[in-house]
Amino acid sequence: MSDVLWLSLRVTVLALALVVPMGGAIGWWLSRARGPMRAVLDACVLVPLVLPPSVTGYYLLVLFGAEGALGAPLKSALGVRLVFTPTGAALAAAVVSLPLMAKGAEAAFLRVDRALVEVARANGLRGLTTFRLVTLPLAMPALAVATTITAIRAFGEFGATWTFAGYAEGRTSTAPLELYVALQSGDDARAGHLALVMTGLSAAVAVALGVWGRRSRSS
């Protein structure tokens, strides 16, 4: 049980390492952009949210599978294989949870009072300095919430991981996959334990978010 949870945690952290900077950057751009390009990127970002996860997994397989458009050169040039690896599971979790991070980050940056940014710029601070000094710290509480929700989604990812990374014990057997396998093999007790642990973790995070949100509003 602890092996499964440890692997799930590793996969989640790896997914976050990919999705937080990328989703954060996309969210920042969406919060500032106008015009048709914004609408196009907005739609693209939302695709993994509206597609069934197994379809997302299928496209990942087409792209990053051993014979895929990107997977084949990755394997031949760098010897990197994603299918049946924790990295592959993390990639699937990252793609599926990207919309939550990007849209959460967009909302976080939109919440920053424009006047506070403008006064920094008008008094001579460059864009990067203004971002570091003003925008990012003010967006941080909402970014933390977006990151937490993204982490929960990545931790619970099943469909795309199953389709793309497959099931390999100890390598891609994250908690949701392990629960499914336990059920299929008739190990109801193990499935029940896994379900209970995941429910407990999710409930703990939900309660922590609620408490933190109330504290943020009252401070």
Binding site: L116, V119, R121, A122, N123, G127, L133
Partner: peptide, 20 residues
């Protein structure tokens, strides 16, 4: 860009950065 104009600017609402 505004930052390159060499200005000092105090807006009507002071726009103080609350976290600093």
């Amino acid at each position: 860009e505004p930052h390159a104009r060499g200005l000092g600017y105090a807006p009507q609402e002071p726009a103080i950065w609350p976290h600093l």
